[in-house]
Design a protein around this nucleic acid. Structure first.
Lengths: 254, 254
DNA sequence: GTCTATATTTAGATAGAC
DNA sequence: GTCTATCTAAATATAGAC
C-alpha cells in the first residue's frame, strides 16, 4: 500500500543493541530493551485483535506507553515489526515440535511412532503455551491463524509454518504406509486447519455450545483434537471408493 | 478506526432502487445495477486478497472502473459494503447446505443419515461452487476464511456461519449417539476448520507437495476431506482414555 | 534512546453540478 | 446515477533537539 517501502527496512541489528553507551550509565540500554519489548507485546496484541492493517503504529505505541517515533526507531517499519513479532515465538514452537517428534521417535524404537504420537508432538507444544500464564501466546496464536489464511501474507506464513511442516509430513508418511502420497499432504493440511480453528480465539465454540465448551480449556481441546485428527488420518489410509457420495453435481437450488 | 462511523450507515434500501427514473430513460437504473455489481465484485476480490483493512475504496472503485464516490453512494460505508459482499453468497450456501441435509435425511429413511452424508451435505455445496466457472466464489471463500479467524469480525462471521452450524450440530448429535455432548461441538469446530483451510486459497498445499496436490481440484479435495472428517468424528465416539499422551506437561526447552 | 514537531501521503466520506 | 472537487482525519515515516 505504501509507495516506496523498499528503502529503509531493518536499519539496525539485534546484536549491536547494547553498544555506544556511556560506561556506568547502563539504564539507557536497559530502557531500550524494555521499550522494544513493550512495543512487541503491544503489537502482538493489536495485530491479533484487528489484523495487521487494522491497527496503526499510534495505537500500538499508545498501548505500549511509549513514544510513536520509537516504533520506527526500533523496528524500521511496521511490516518489519510484524516480522519480529512472529519470529520471536515461531522459533520456539518449531524447536519444541521437532524435539517432541524426536522424543516420540526414540520411544517408538525401530518402528515408526504412532499417528497419535506424531499428532500430539505437533499440537501439544502450541496448546501447552496457550494454557501457560503468558497471554502473549494466545495473541501470537490468533495472529498466526490470520496470516495462515490471508493471501497477502502467504509468504510470511509459509516461512513460519513450512519448515515445521516438512518434518511432520515425512513422519506421517512413515506412519501411514498404506496411504497414497497425496493423502499425506492433504492430511497435514487438515491437521493444520483443525489446529488453526482451535487456536484462533474467536469464542465461537463458547457461543455455539452456550458455555459447555471453552476454547481455553487446553486439556479438553487436546483430548478431542488428537483423536479427531488421528482418526481422520487413519481414514485416509482406506480405499476412498468405500463411501459413495449422497450429493449430485448439480445444485439443488434455482 | 474512524472517529464517527455510527452516523450515516445504510442511507438507501435495495427495494427502492428502480424508482424516480424518467420513463423511457431506462438505461440509468440498469447502469446503476451494473455499477453496484461491479463494486461488489471488485470489493470481493480486493477484500479476499488483502483483507478488509488492507484495501481502500479507491483501489476497489478503480478495479471496478467506476467513480470513487459511487461506492459510498451505493453502499453507504465501507463496512456496509463488506456486509453486502458477504450476504449475497452466504444466503445461497446456507440454503444449499440445509437442502442437502434434508435430502440426506429423506434418503436415510427413519434412521439418522450417516456421518459421511452429513459431512458431505455441509462441504459439497461450497466446494462445488469453487469448481464452478464463477471465480467470485473462490474470493468469497477466502474472505469467509479470514473473517472466521479475525476477532475484529467475529460478530459478522457468526452471523454468517452460526445459523448453518446449528442445523449440522443437531444432525451430528443424532449420528453420533455415543459421543459426549461436548465432543459434538468440538467436532463441528474441527469440520469447520478443516474446510476453512481447504477453501482459503493460499496455495500452500501446492507448494508443500510441489504440485502433487492442487487446492482447486475439488473432486480430489472432497475425496480426502469427507473421509478425514468422518473418520475423525467417529473417533470422538470412542473412549478418550484409550490413547495415552506421549508428551509431558513441562516443555523440553529452557 | 527518547521526544517534539512535522513532512507527506492516503484514508473514508460528502457537497453540489450535471 | 454519475462525476469533479474537496474536506477532515489519520496513516507511516523522519528530522533534529535533548
Amino acid at each position: 500500500m505504501r509507495t516506496k517501502p523498499a528503502a529503509a527496512a531493518k536499519p539496525r541489528r539485534n546484536g549491536s543493541k547494547r553498544k555506544a553507551q556511556v560506561p556506568g550509565e547502563r539504564s539507557g540500554a536497559r530502557r531500550g530493551d524494555a521499550t522494544r519489548l513493550s512495543i512487541l507485546d503491544a503489537a502482538e496484541w493489536s495485530f491479533a485483535q484487528s489484523g495487521f492493517d487494522g491497527v496503526s503504529l499510534r495505537t500500538i505505541t499508545e498501548r505500549a506507553d511509549v513514544d510513536l517515533a520509537l516504533a520506527n526507531y526500533h523496528f524500521g517499519s511496521k511490516e518489519n515489526l510484524l516480522h519480529e513479532v512472529i519470529a520471536r515465538r515461531a522459533r520456539i514452537v518449531h524447536d519444541e515440535r521437532v524435539q517432541a517428534l524426536e522424543l516420540a521417535r526414540q520411544q517408538a524404537g525401530t518402528k515408526s511412532p504412532s499417528i497419535e504420537a506424531i499428532v500430539s508432538a505437533f499440537l501439544a507444544p502450541m496448546l501447552r503455551h496457550l494454557a501457560d500464564g503468558d497471554a502473549g501466546w494466545r495473541y501470537y496464536a490468533s495472529l498466526v491463524s490470520q496470516l495462515d489464511v490471508l493471501p497477502k501474507f502467504t509468504a510470511l506464513a509459509s516461512a513460519v509454518l513450512d519448515p515445521t511442516a516438512l518434518h511432520f509430513i515425512n513422519a506421517l508418511r512413515l506412519a501411514m504406509p498404506k496411504a497414497p502420497e497425496a493423502s499425506v499432504y492433504w492430511g497435514y493440511m487438515f491437521l493444520l486447519g483443525t489446529m488453526v480453528q482451535v487456536i484462533s480465539a474467536t469464542g465461537r465454540i463458547e457461543r455455539l455450545s452456550r458455555g459447555l465448551c471453552r476454547s481455553n480449556d487446553v486439556d479438553a481441546a487436546l483430548r478431542e483434537i488428537v483423536p479427531f485428527v488421528s482418526g481422520g488420518l487413519r481414514a485416509l489410509e482406506h480405499d476412498p471408493e468405500k463411501w459413495k457420495p449422497v450429493f449430485r453435481k448439480d445444485h439443488a437450488t434455482e
